Simulated assay, not measured.
Amino acid sequence: MNKVLVDVDVQRDFCEPSGALYVPGSPNDVFRALVARAVEARIPILGSVDSHAWDAWEFDSSEAHGPAGERPGFPDHCVKGTPGWLKVEGTLPRRFRFLPNVPDAPILPVVDEVLRGQTEGVYFEKEVYSMFANPLAERFLRALVDRMEAPPTFFVFGVATDYCVRAAALGLAERGHRTALVTDAIAGITPEGTARALEEMQSAGVRLTRAAEVLS
Rank of each mutant, 00 (worst) to 15 (best):
E174G: 15
D7C: 09
S26F: 11
L115N: 03
T209G: 10
D13T: 00
V4W: 06
E40Y: 08
D112V: 13
D146E: 10
G84I: 01
F124S: 01
P67H: 02
F14E: 05
F132Q: 00
L141K: 07
E70Y: 05
P67R: 00
E40S: 05
K126N: 01
V49A: 05
S61R: 11
P72E: 02
E138D: 09
E200K: 05
V8S: 10
L92N: 02
E113F: 14
G205R: 05
A212Y: 04
E199H: 06
F74W: 11
A68Y: 13
T91S: 03
D9C: 10
V35G: 06
R175F: 02
E70H: 04
L144P: 02
P24Q: 15
S18G: 02
E120V: 00
S61Q: 11
D7T: 13
S216N: 14
P17A: 00
F155M: 02
E149W: 10
A150N: 15
T153A: 03
R116E: 06
G81I: 10
E127L: 09
A105F: 14
R95N: 01
G90T: 05
T209F: 15
L46V: 04
P191C: 05
R139M: 06
S18E: 03
W85I: 04
G176A: 12
A41K: 06
C78N: 02
G84E: 02
L208M: 03
C78K: 01
A36G: 03
A160P: 15
S62V: 08
I189V: 15
E70G: 02
G193M: 15
A169P: 12
A68L: 07
F132C: 00
L99Y: 12
R42D: 04
F132A: 00
V114A: 06
P83R: 10
G158E: 06
Q11F: 09
K87Q: 07
R147S: 00
V165L: 08
S203L: 05
P67G: 01
I186D: 03
P44S: 01
P152M: 07
G81E: 11
V10W: 14
R210H: 03
G66Q: 07
E149M: 09
A167H: 15
R97H: 13
R139W: 13
P109S: 15
V156C: 05
G73R: 02
S62D: 06
D112R: 10
T119H: 09
V159K: 12
W85A: 03
P106E: 14
D50R: 09
V35R: 07
L34E: 14
P67D: 02
G121M: 09
T179H: 11
R147T: 01
E213D: 12
G205H: 08
F140S: 13
R116N: 04
L208R: 01
A187K: 14
L34I: 14
S203N: 08
T194F: 11
L136C: 09
G47M: 01
P106M: 14
Q118Y: 13
L5E: 09
Y129C: 10
D146A: 04
T119L: 07
M131Y: 06
G19F: 03
G69K: 04
R12Q: 12
R175P: 02
D29C: 15
A168L: 10
P152R: 07
P24S: 11
V182P: 03
T82Q: 05
D184L: 01
L136A: 09
V4I: 08
M1H: 01
W85Y: 12
E127V: 14
V111R: 05
H65N: 00
M148H: 09
